[in-house]
Amino acid sequence: MSLQLDFPAVLERWPSFLAGAVLTLELAFFATVLGALLGTLAAVGRGTHNSLIAGACKVYVETIRNTPLLVQIFLVYFGLASLGLKYSAFTVAVAALTINVGAYTAEIMRAGFEAIPRGQIEAAEGLALSRFQIYWHIILLPAVEKVYPALTSQFVLLMLASSVCSQISAEELTAVANYIQSDTYRAFETYIIVAVLYVILSLVMRAGFWGLGLLLFPRRRRLGTPL
C-alpha cells in the first residue's frame, strides 16, 4: 500500500482556493454581524413582558435550534424561489446563516442578560434612565463580556458550518474544493489543503475577535480581568 500525494497539481489552482476562502470569510462576516444583531434582538424579545413577542422569539429560537442547517438553507433557497424572488446564492447563504446563528446567539445573549445583577438595573432605574438607555448603557456590554468566549466560538462554528452552502452553489471554500477535486482527481490533497485553509480562517477570526474584545472592553484592557 503506498500513498502518493501530488500537491503541486492541486496547488496550482491557488487562485480558486483563495477566492473560495475569501468568500467563506465574507459569508462569515456578514452572517456574524447580522446574526449578532438578530440574536440580541431575539434575546431582548424573549425577556419582554409582551407574551406575543416573547412567544414569537421562543418559537424562532427553538425551531432553528432543532432543525439541521442544511434544511434551513434549502428552505430559504427554495422558499424564496417559489415566491418568485431571485437572489444570488451568496445572498441566500448569508440570509440562511444569519437566521441560523441568530437563534444560537439569542440563547447565549439571554444567558448574558440573566447574569446581570438585579441591583445594576435598579441603580440605573434610580438614575431615571429609560428602558432603552438601561439596555444600551448598562446591560449590553457587560452581558456581551460575560458570554464573549461562547459567542466567538459560535461565530467560528458558523464559519465552519458555512461549508454546507456549497450545496446551493455559493462559491465558498468547500464548493471550490469540490470543483477542483473533480477536475484534478486529487481529492485527498484538495481536502487537506481546504482543511488547512479552514484552520487559518478560524485563527483569523479568533484574532479578529480578540482585537474586537480589546476595543469593546476598555476596562479589561486596563485591568486584565474579565467582568
Binding site: 445583577p117 441591583g119 445594576q120 435598579e122 441603580a123 440605573a124 432605574e125 434610580g126 438614575l127 431615571a128 429609560s130 448603557h137 448598562i138 456590554l141 457587560p142 463580556e145 472592553f217 476596562r219 467582568l227
Partner: peptide, 22 residues
C-alpha cells in the same frame, strides 16, 4: 417614573456602581 426618579436619589447597600464604566 422618570420624573419622580430625577427628583429622588437612592443609594443601595451593595453600591451598584456600573463595573464596566470608570
Amino acid at each position: 417614573l422618570r420624573a419622580l426618579r430625577q427628583d429622588v436619589g437612592i443609594v443601595f447597600q451593595s453600591y451598584n456602581l456600573f463595573p464596566h464604566l470608570t
